[in-house]
């Protein structure tokens, strides 16, 4: 078979996509975009981890420091145990607040999209 004749045949070997191909593709891309975290979410994740690691480090240091009581503004005297309990409580509240904020951002993004 001659080169020209062969080329003529091969030009007929094109396979056509289904009619909904482009629509399906764009829907798939939209779905992927929705899954992608926003910049606020990306910023919140290290902030939460930083808070957890930093908070735990401070609590650990305070636990190791030898002291019987802690004075605030030269007026309020706190024992080490109530101080630790109070700080752990604040620490858990902080984490809870940040996780809720992260959840709110996520649900807001879903609504916007």
């Amino acid at each position: 078979m001659e080169e020209k004749a062969f080329k003529k045949i091969l030009l007929k070997s094109k396979v056509r996509t289904s009619e909904e191909f482009t629509d399906d593709l764009m829907k798939r891309l939209e779905a992927r975009k929705a899954e992608r975290p926003t910049s606020i979410q990306i910023m919140l994740r290290p902030a939460i981890w930083g808070f957890v690691v930093g908070g735990m480090a401070i609590l650990y240091i305070l636990f190791l420091v030898p002291m019987s009581s802690f004075t605030v503004f030269n007026r309020i005297h706190l024992g080490k145990t109530p101080l630790m309990v109070g700080l752990i409580f604040l620490f858990i509240m902080g984490i809870n607040h940040m996780l809720r904020l992260s959840q709110k951002v996520e649900s807001y993004n879903q609504l916007v999209k």
Partner: peptide, 14 residues
């Protein structure tokens, strides 16, 4: 992107 897809989808599928 849709224009590019429509232009090349058949040859790419082949």
């Amino acid at each position: 992107f849709v224009d590019l897809v429509n232009k090349y989808k058949d040859l790419s599928l082949s």
